[in-house]
Design a protein around this nucleic acid. Structure first.
Lengths: 239, 239
DNA sequence: TTTTCTCTCCCCAGAAATGGTGAGGGGGCG
DNA sequence: CGCCCCCTCACCATTTCTGGGGAGAGAAAA
């Protein structure tokens, strides 16, 4: 499975890729280096937007998006609830839709084996890094055991690249909230009503409203719920 | 800085630790192996609860919690908005409170240098892995450059351990929201009013209310804002 | 030092959200 | 087939939030 020196070279290429083309090239080089069928980085956003790069066929990618498979893909669903990298065999493939999906994926050239690493960034960002291959269970187990750590690091690199390439997806730096505003947003995010927040902070509800409005203004939010969501997204409060 | 063989041994110990004592021991062994002052894993819980293990003094940990420093600690605030590991020097230490905090931390034995890695797990889990040392900038830069990748993997191990040890800390696995509920929560988080959401989804406002209430129930939320905040921390919606 | 921000308090009326209950058709899973 | 969940719609009264105003003291930053 290739020489260590060559791996270092490819990782360098990945780390220094400045454009999607270069990233795509590094991805293919890595896949070939590992001697597997596919390597994919897939940015998922539950609003349905997707973005990524990898070596799946265009036909499969189009099919996946067109069918909104993201909603039933056990890899997505399973990784969403895990921290650990996971072998596809350990996912939940029961259910009619999931099995049909798997069958179709293999028809489109996806391997019968797979290993996916969930990655999370600020702002609830979620992405997957997957390697896939067509082989028997034992061969695959040997491969994943041997390369698990490298794959975690590569997944990390990919996500870093994705965040670098698409900074607009990361929250813009907002004017910081004042301590009282943070308190207000935090308690509201914890489900307190305005009256409860005011009581908790030992201030009048009128005063509290000033904070909320001021926070709303600073965050460019349309209403309280929006302001809380924005404060969370931008990492201004930790709930 | 130590032999590779020994590092492997310690990593094995970390990987196979079954109890907090063993974890603590592995932490100290790793710190000594790297030849640094501190190594800390710090779990920041949704409700503001904290938990972790590491080599900071008990006095400092107590002081930190007692003073609610989590609210002003630039390491927390900065890492919350980043994906990349970050050197403390690159954080925002302007502001009186932040500088006072830093001064006090050093008095309590925290290093003047630090390197922190944000880690995120399912359900909005957030933790930090930090190494800290007392030395000059150049020495520290050499250290972090040389060990960046290993530290990322170690951070990963720590979080895996934390999730293994305290599965109950992960907020109860909420029943997944239905597609319509996700739509509703997402649009509400975007600042739409109920009427606007209903129009956008082409359903009656009455129907929309059913979704919101059902989502609130599933999330154990007290009101709409709380439900949206919960959906966000649990990674059920991405805004 | 000046200016900007923060914290605190108050009024009012209209708009929006909430809680409780009820009901019918459709789909998947055991 | 029965059960459970999803999607859709409706009415009632009550509570809560929002959008306009205005005002003064003190602290921090430029």
């Amino acid at each position: 499975m290739g020489m260590t020196q060559r791996r270092e070279t490819i990782l360098e290429e990945l780390t220094h890729a400045q454009e999607l083309d270069a990233l795509q090239h590094a991805t293919e080089a890595l896949r070939d280096h590992f001697g597997i069928d596919h390597m994919v980085y897939h940015w998922v956003n539950s609003a349905g937007e997707q973005y990524g790069c990898g070596t799946y066929s265009d036909a499969w990618r189009d099919r996946y998006i067109e069918q909104d498979y993201i909603r039933i893909d056990p890899v997505i669903i399973g990784c969403y609830q895990r921290f650990h990298p996971v072998d596809w065999k350990r996912l939940d493939w029961s259910g009619k839709a999931a099995r049909a999906f798997q069958r179709e994926a293999i028809e489109y050239g996806v391997g019968n084996q797979g290993f996916s690493i969930p990655i999370r960034g600020p702002n609830g960002q979620f992405a997957l890094f997957t390697v896939s291959h067509h082989c028997d269970d034992d061969t695959w187990a040997v491969f994943t055991d041997a390369n698990r750590r490298d794959l975690i690091l590569i997944a990390h690199e990919f996500n870093q690249k994705a965040l670098d390439f698409e900074p607009e997806r990361a929250p813009e730096q907002a004017r910081a909230l004042s301590p009282r505003e943070v308190d207000a947003m935090t308690l509201l995010a914890m489900g307190y009503s305005r009256a409860q927040v005011a009581e908790t902070l030992s201030i009048s509800e009128h005063t509290l409203r000033v904070y909320i409005e001021s926070a709303r203004f600073k965050l460019g939010a349309l209403n309280t719920t929006h302001a809380v969501a924005q404060a969370m997204t931008r990492g201004l409060i930790v709930v």
